[in-house]
Every structure is written in C-alpha cells, then in structure tokens.
Design a protein around this nucleic acid. Sequence first.
DNA 1: CATGAATGAGGTTTCATTCAT
DNA 2: TATGAATGAAACCTCATTCAT
Lengths: 222, 222, 222, 222
Amino acid sequence: MDSKHARALTPRKTPRQARSTVTVDAVFEATIQVLLSEGAQRLTTTRVAERAGVSVGTLYQYYPNKQALLYAVMQRHLEHVATAVEQACEQHHHVPLGTMVQGLVHAFVAAKTARVDEARALYLVAAELNAAELVLAISGRTRRATSAMLATATDASFEDLPTVTFMVNSAMVGSTRAVLEGRAPPRMLRVLREQLITLCEAYLKRVALPVTARGEKARKTA
Amino acid sequence: MDSKHARALTPRKTPRQARSTVTVDAVFEATIQVLLSEGAQRLTTTRVAERAGVSVGTLYQYYPNKQALLYAVMQRHLEHVATAVEQACEQHHHVPLGTMVQGLVHAFVAAKTARVDEARALYLVAAELNAAELVLAISGRTRRATSAMLATATDASFEDLPTVTFMVNSAMVGSTRAVLEGRAPPRMLRVLREQLITLCEAYLKRVALPVTARGEKARKTA
Amino acid sequence: MDSKHARALTPRKTPRQARSTVTVDAVFEATIQVLLSEGAQRLTTTRVAERAGVSVGTLYQYYPNKQALLYAVMQRHLEHVATAVEQACEQHHHVPLGTMVQGLVHAFVAAKTARVDEARALYLVAAELNAAELVLAISGRTRRATSAMLATATDASFEDLPTVTFMVNSAMVGSTRAVLEGRAPPRMLRVLREQLITLCEAYLKRVALPVTARGEKARKTA
Amino acid sequence: MDSKHARALTPRKTPRQARSTVTVDAVFEATIQVLLSEGAQRLTTTRVAERAGVSVGTLYQYYPNKQALLYAVMQRHLEHVATAVEQACEQHHHVPLGTMVQGLVHAFVAAKTARVDEARALYLVAAELNAAELVLAISGRTRRATSAMLATATDASFEDLPTVTFMVNSAMVGSTRAVLEGRAPPRMLRVLREQLITLCEAYLKRVALPVTARGEKARKTA
DNA sequence: CATGAATGAGGTTTCATTCAT
DNA sequence: TATGAATGAAACCTCATTCAT
C-alpha cells in the first residue's frame, strides 16, 4: 500500500534554502486558494503555479505530479488535526467523562476551524484524490487516541469501546463538516462546540456501564 | 445561481416510451458502475455510454451535458432519501421522542444503505459537481421535516429547534457516511442503526425542555 | 515481451468505414513526410495530425500514443520488406547459388527502394522507438528465409549456414542503408544491385563446401 | 549547413587545466552511460550532469547546448575509428589485396569493438542528432583512405574504385553494426572479423581487373 | 432517432537553458 | 567558477461535445 505510492506521491525535494521554503509555502497556499475560488474541477497545476507566482516548472520541482501536491496539502491538514486530537486525548486520561469530552471536542473543533478555508478546500480534494488510505490512516490515529482516553475514564467504562469511539468521532466529523461546508446557518459555527459536547456526553453517559467500585449510582440505562 | 443552471442541468427529454426508459436506466446504472470501478477522474461520457451499451450521441440526447447527467443521478438518490425521511417524519408526528428517533433513523439508514454502491458512488460525485446547491436543498427538506416532527413530540420541546435538528441530522449523515466510505469496521453497518438511535435519543432528551402538562391531546395520527 | 507492449503499442481501432481508412492512410503518409521534412526530433503528434489534415484527437483515436503510431509505420514497412524477401526466397529453392543471390538481392533492394522516402524516414524512427524487438523479429524472418533457401542450393552447401546467412543479410542491409541515407554518390542507387549480387555471390562461392555428388569440381577454397 | 552549426556545436572551452579535463571526461562517460541505461529519450542534460557528478551549470560551461555535447561525444568516437582506419590503410599501401583487407578489417573491427558500449550508445545518438554531416565527413575520410590504399594493391586494380570502396566499407559497417546492436548471435562477435575478411577479399578479387605485368615495383613500405 | 468519427481546447508534465547566489 | 532553483515553451494526451451519415 505504501510502497505503491512511495515514488508517485512523495514530494521531490524538501526545501532547505530560504528561497525554496518560500516557494513551497506559496504553492501550498495557492492550492487552497485556487480550490476555494475556482473549485476542484478548475484546479490545474498551471493555475496553482500562476496564483503562487511561480512557473509550472517550479511547482514540478517540488511535487512529481498534481496528485502529490494535493496529497501533501491534505496530509499536512489531517496531520495537524490528528496531532491536536492525540495531544488533547493524552492530556485527558484518567479524568471524568465530561472533562474528556470537553477536551476532545475542543481540540477537534479548534483544529478544524483554525483555518476554515483550508478545511473547506480539502473536502473538495478528498474525492479528487484517492485519499481513502490517507483519511483512513488519520482517522485511525484519532480513533486510537480517543479509545485510549475513554478507557481511562474515572466515572465510566464501555462494553464496546470501538463502536462508541466510532460514533463519537463520526458525530464530530459529520457535524463539523456540515458546518464548514455551509450546510448550516453561520451561527452554528459558534454553538457547534457546546452542542457537540452535549451530544457526545449524553451519548457516552447513556452507553456507559455502571462503574462498580466507585461512589456513583448505577443509572437506569436500558 | 439557480437560474444560471436552469437550462444547463435539466434533462433534455422526459422519457415516455419504453425504450427511452430503458436507456435512461441503463445510463444511470452505468454511471454508478463506472464511478465505482474507475473513479470520479475516469468517469467520462464515452465510458458511461459504452458501459450502458449505447452511443455517446444517444447519451447526449437525454442529457445536455455531463454535469446534467451527474446532477440527475445525484438528484434521484438524494430525492429518494429526502422523500423517505419526509414520509417517516410525517408518520411520526405527535408521538414520544423515542419513537420519533427510531422512525427517523430507520428511514434514513434504510434509504442510504438500500443501495450501498450508489451512495458510495455519489460521495465521489458531490465534490466533482458543484452540488452544494442541490445538497443544500435536500438537506433543507430533511431538516424541515425533522423539525416539524420534533416540534410535535408528546414528551419534549426544544428551545432552539433548528440547532437541535442540525445536530441530529449531521450526526446521522456523518456516521452513515463514515460507514459507507469504509471508514469503519464492516460490522458497524449492522450496529449503526441502534447506536444512532441511542445517540440521538440521548442527545434530544438531554437538550429537551421539561414538558409541563400541556393542553395538547395526543392524537393517534397514522 | 509481446504482452508487455500488447496494449501500449497496438492500434486502437482498425478502420472499417471508408472515412476512417482515408484518415489512417493520411496519418501514415503524414508521419513519413514530417519525419523527412522536419527530422525525428520535430516529429510531434500535433505536427503529424496537422500535416495529415486531421485533428490530434483523431490521431489518438487510432493510436493510443506516439510510439504506437511510429511502431505501426515501422511495422508496415518492415513487414513489407520481410514478405518480399520471404517470397523471393521460396521461389528460388533448389536452384544454383547465382540465381538465388540474384533473386534475393533483387527482392530486397526492390522492396527497400520502392519507397525511398519511407525507408529513409524509418531509419530515423528505429532509434527513437525502442524497435529492437521488432527489427529483431523481422530480421529473423529474413534470415530464416535466406537460410532455408541457401540450404537447397544445387551447386553448394555450407558448413556454418547461420553465419553465412548473417553476413549476406547484413551486407545487403548495410550497403542499402548507406545508399538510402545518402552516404554514397547518387549513382550508387543504380549500381547497388549488381554490386551486391557480385559481392554476395563471390562470398558465398568462396565459403561454399565442394558439392560431392555433383558434376562440379572442388574449388581451391582455403 | 556547416557554417550554420559552426558556433552552435563547438565546445565552449578546450579543457587545459587538470580539473577541466576530469570534468569533461566524466561528462563524456556519463553521457554514454545514461544513453545505455536510460535510452536516447531519457538522455537529459540534468541526468548527464548528475551522473557525472557535476551541476548542470558546469556542464553548460563546457558545451553551449545539448547538441554540442552529443556532437562532441559522437565526433570523438568517429574520429577514433576514422583515424584507426586511416593509419591502417596508410600502413598497407603497396601490398597484395589479401593483406590490405586484413589490415583494413582488423583496424575497423578493433576500433568499433574496443568500447562496445560506446559504439552502441552512439547508434542511438546518430538519429537524434542530425549527424548526417558528421557521419558523411567521417565516412569520407574512411573512403578516401581505403581508396588510396586499394589503388596501390600489388596484385589488382579496379575499374570503378569509388564503387568498390563503397561496397567494402558499407559491408564492414553494416555487419559490425548488426553485431553490436545485438541483431546476431553473440558468437558472431568472434567470427565477424574472419568472415568480413573472407567477404571483402572474395568481392575484391572478383571485381579486380586482371593485372598485367605493370611497370610498378613492389615497395616494402612500412 | 442512433451512431461514432472528428474536433480542439485545455490539462499534465518534461527539459534545455539561464542567472542570481 | 560552480551551483541548482527557476523558467516557460512545447510536448503528449484526454475528453466533452457536435454533426454527417
């Protein structure tokens, strides 16, 4: 899986000199801008280069092909989100469920909305690119981090942790995406976080097994 | 925005004769198949026609351009889902929250998973096409139907119905999409429904305002 | 070997309708003309199409890529030559060496010089294309035919037929090529045939083993 | 034709310093290697420079353009062969035909097969480059030397010396090329020389005019 | 009505060459 | 003098769309 794309999707050179770094950054930024202003269909390497203020040739010195460029842009974004989630999860081990959910949701929403334009642009790319692998890898990281955290909740434990994790993650991903893609009134962006916290917490508390050796009362979960 | 596409995206003729219907269906089916087997990038009108067993010329007699074809395919699918949700919602007015959620989730998941391949194929198209409008329109219908239903719950009422509706819908959409796109272990497809019900119900009950004895009569609307 | 190129070098469709045949022929002819007037470096698909009076797209309907076009042009020429040689050889079994050589040389030179421009053009292509395989296959046919013929000479037999065949063939090929590529005064084209006959006959008679059961005297071959 | 390329194809500086010579040699060698390992199509200045261990810029300090590089590589090879042939011919004036042929063939085959890879690589370049001029010039030298030698044969004279020379030369060139390009079983490389000698000698003796006792004294020129 | 050959704009990618460092 | 990042013309090839048959 990895080896197949090894050469096809790997950037050609890592910028070391100042000039190169500037160029690579410009290309990155241009990709997002073109994506947003022109749409995925009209995202051409020529246009990206133009917008970045460099020649096509230069673009191809850093990326062996268009896919590799998109892949890199996507990877950076997803990596960023996954890292944020992982850190948040690690910092919220061994705390009550409510605190966990707050930490997780906050980290995810913050990471995704830090650069709304970037996130929005990448939804368009995901289909274009055959990003299944990449998305899978990243969502795997998020899931593992979430699972590991939930397993240490001081006030709850779960029968089917993978499923629970999946539901929480996909609810976060789904609602955030809907907001970012404009499928909700703009004010949603403001209330999203609290609503997500409420939603996740309510769900998790509902499916949690009663914690025996603790001072909590078993809820009437069906 | 809408008027701009008015002529461009409308199918050229409504099939009345038997032969036409067959052709249109074949083209529809071929589109899905090509999408799944070749990917969005390699979805060409020629390939679709070939797979459908007709000539390109014929394809263009039914759709003025490629966009219109994709638009139609997408529309049929979304229409189907939206209609299913609308019907379910209408049939669950004036019942308790739990029943509503069951009805809604069931209808949505059933509609989306009836033809897994179709649903999956269309995720690929959504980006290609500038389907924002269409998706928006359809998600609007779903939302209105959901809102209208929730407003009649016999055992709950909501302060901010639009937000609540949005959260419920996007949780459904998000988790179902994740499953269909293979971002979850296959068994998720089986437990998805019950988990979604649990999730939505837990959330709704949490955000519901306490219902004081209202003057409304519980009607047994079919 | 063959399978590797099966799809890459095979023409896309065989022209069946009158219009198509005209197009394919025009493309063929244009390839040769461009090759001769512009050189191998400037042989571009666009230029060929232009010269043929069709669009590039049309060219690509018949050949999946540039190589396939060149391959086809080359193949037709070599096939033609090989067939001519094979026929000549078959028609000159069981005759004296002198007659054989006349038949062989005549056929080869005639085939190669029938369309001097084509032959010349193809020397340019041979390197461009990795035509080693093709050339090998064709020269194999020529060699087999020559060998088979020589083996039936009424007035000679050979100790090392493959070597003898190779020398005769490569002398024919080499001198004809030199003439066609303009590496000889133009009058050479006229005397080439007789000279080649003299050369081959002299060589063959020199290396021939004395034929025992015949009425011929053993020559003083060293 | 000649003047047109005068400036374009001349190397920029003649290497005088040790470092330059090393660089030029490395570039030469790299060109051959790239040609053989990657093919004529993938012979790029960047690749050559890389393989030679220098930067493209440096390469362009020695050759004004790619053609000039190829031209120089080709020229060196052909020059080498032509010189070898010229020397051999000069050393075999005024000897019997058999001795001449031995000397000529030996020199030619030895020169061509000294560096089989180089010779093979250059066949690929010859078409790429418009090397007609160069090849013509070199083959002219070979022909003049051969003619001059043959004219002094002690045991033969020829009616049409240019034609005879051409046939001998093109038979040598043709069969050697066929062997080097792999169009013959590998053992041919070993028997090629003797066969060529046999072939040339047989031909020359056949077309030689009978030598009546001439007034020329056989000189034992070294 | 159906066909499918033809079109050509436009996309991706390469590579000889330059020039600031 | 050497470097190698940048350039951009130009090559290859695709594919939505038309229209003569």
